[in-house]
């Protein structure tokens, strides 16, 4: 077991290393951050000074080695644009992205499971057909378009919700959270729904498939024969069984929501990590790009590891050492 963990950690380190090399070479190939950041009025001397100040005068391999040395001490560099530690910049924006991702996931479960249950239990009904057709839309409509439509209808036309941005925040544990205020929730509603749409459809389909499969199982027949009420059969016995795939998939989806909610964040001007990474790519702010991707790689590796570990806990037939 510990050998397995060690090997996984080593793999993680290698992936992060490879990724940082790719970003370094990639940013170098795209262009020169100084050309983008510097005032056009700047003369040649000023340009040379800026290149030196940002450490870009050294050959690429030396820049990379010094980055690596600092990274081992936990310092991922300072943003070229903001002159603040890249890691700190990202962590400052993390709460905004986390509450958006969790908001979307919770919405997906609250809306998706009941609809999926209904569609699974009464597959022939008109309502079920509507739900299933609707879920196709959820899969196929582009996020940015749906986002703009939501803004047009609920903010511009009806004026019920604020169009963009994040609401009031309160400080909890040194981080700013907006889901604890009414204003914050109002701001959160549309972007979270926009991000949730795809997940709702996913949960509906998973739940429906699970219900239809489970309802035919022997233990359901047995429970019925035992004289349990329909309500109890579904809410306890069926429900437990269908939750395993739903939770697995939603958990993995959460990771990609945190990492890649870029489109929703920029349509709604949501000050999260996704917007930071897009802005950083536009100005070639290499330290932030590298730090962000490293955090994301680390997060995915951790989630995958947790999933593998939980499988082995749930199912003794899965032996990690034999993999």
């Amino acid at each position: 077991m510990s050998l397995y963990l060690l090997r996984r950690l080593l793999q993680a380190a290698l992936v992060m290393l490879a990724m940082s090399v790719i970003v370094f070479v990639g940013v170098y190939a795209i262009g020169d951050p100084v050309e983008i950041l510097i005032s056009p009025d700047a003369d040649q001397m000023e340009r040379e000074r800026a290149i030196k100040a940002l450490g870009l005068d050294l050959p690429l391999w030396m820049q990379y080695l010094s980055f690596l040395g600092n990274a081992l001490r936990g310092d991922l560099g300072r943003s070229f644009v903001f002159n603040e530690p890249a890691l700190q910049l990202i962590l400052q924006r993390m709460p905004a992205t986390l509450e958006l991702a969790f908001g979307a996931t919770i919405m997906a479960l609250i809306i998706g499971i009941p609809l999926g249950l209904y569609a699974g239990l009464k597959p022939k009904s008109f309502g079920a057909k509507c739900i299933m057709t609707g879920s196709i839309l959820g899969f196929s409509l582009p996020t940015f378009w749906v986002g703009l439509m939501l803004i047009m209808v609920f903010a511009v036309q009806l004026g019920w919700l604020p169009s963009t941005g994040r609401g009031e925040t309160v400080d909890v544990m040194g981080m700013r959270w907006s889901f604890l205020t009414w204003d914050g929730l109002r701001h959160l509603a549309m972007p979270a729904l926009n991000l949730a749409l795809f997940k709702i459809s996913l949960v509906i389909r998973l739940t429906r498939a699970g219900v239809r499969e489970t309802m035919l199982m022997d233990f359901v027949k047995f429970a019925r024969a035992k004289g349990l009420t329909n309500r109890r059969v579904i809410s306890v016995h069926v429900f437990k069984n269908i939750m395993i795939p739903v939770v697995t998939v939603v958990g993995l989806e959460l990771g990609s929501t945190i990492a890649f909610s870029v489109v929703t964040e920029s349509v709604f001007a949501w000050p999260g990590m996704g917007k930071l990474i897009i802005d950083s790519i536009n100005v070639l702010d290499r330290p932030v790009i590298v730090a962000y991707l490293m955090i994301i790689v680390l997060m995915f590796i951790t989630i995958n590891l947790l999933v593998d570990l939980s499988y082995s806990a749930l199912d003794p037939r899965v032996r990690l050492e034999n993999k």
Binding site: L148, I151, P162, A269
Partner: peptide, 18 residues
């Protein structure tokens, strides 16, 4: 003084009165 780099978001914000 809000920063909204996306053109569409900025337009929607002023049209909706935010």
């Amino acid at each position: 003084y809000r920063i909204m780099t996306n053109n569409a978001a900025r337009m929607a914000a002023v049209l909706s009165g935010d």
